[in-house]
Nucleic acid binder design. Structure first.
Lengths: 114, 114
DNA sequence: CAATAATATGAGCATATACTCATACAAGAA
DNA sequence: TTCTTGTATGAGTATATGCTCATATTATTG
């Protein structure tokens, strides 16, 4: 196969577990909201709490999950902690899913019209 | 602007819920194994059960989840039901995650060597 | 030092979901 | 029809995880 490259082909179950874990981190809407909020640039926890209207504890936990997964980075500045996107492939991932979903919804809408 | 949950790129929280749901479907290692098995082409449930060594009930449920998400397609042929990849963007998604994980693991390995 | 502010975390609850067992359903064969 | 095979599903259990409350931790200020 000429185009074997880096697809999931032949990946052992152990590797798929890692891939699944990465997808699982992205499978939480509030985490996506946090990522989305950070597209504009780094923000501290308080700003993210205000923007998302989630509790501080909840935001903190989600940020920890995202940081441990390597998706976000952390920077302390005095009392504040600033978080920022550390994995630029996030945007490609979301774009892929979004465009796919749009395609599916468009097809569904068309089928409803006959 | 009204008090709306803010997200960048003009994606409302409602849309992010759909995106998250799609990621969640991919966040299960056995589902990734099924997808991986189908890269070679369509297979019926029995073949997938043999290949993954999961129970038939479990495989059937995962296939249902993947099909309802639009990732797989279904084709009945007599007693057999064949499943196949219906969303080619799956490969790009996995490619992105895999290459990113490889990069992270390589960096971690290098840091362990000092 | 104590007080304050920003963030993190332990504990407990609630929900979601992956799994299994048993059984139901579907489609061909006898 | 009945029997057999392949697949789907209802029910129950176990575990994972998202959430909140309260408290702990960290860093700054007085």
């Amino acid at each position: 196969m000429p185009n074997q490259a880096k697809t999931a082909r032949g990946l052992p179950a152990e590797a798929l577990e890692l891939v699944a874990a990465r997808f699982r981190v992205l499978g939480e809407p509030n985490r996506l909201r946090l990522i989305s909020a950070l597209e504009q640039g780094e923000k501290n926890v308080s700003e993210l709490v205000a923007e998302t209207e989630l509790t501080q504890a909840n935001v903190s936990r989600h940020l920890q999950t995202l940081t441990e997964a390597g998706l976000l980075g952390r920077r302390k500045e005095g009392l504040n902690v600033f978080y920022f996107i550390a994995d630029e492939s996030l945007f490609k991932l979301c774009d892929l899913v979004c465009s796919r979903l749009q395609k599916e919804l468009a097809a569904k809408a068309a089928s409803l019209k006959g």
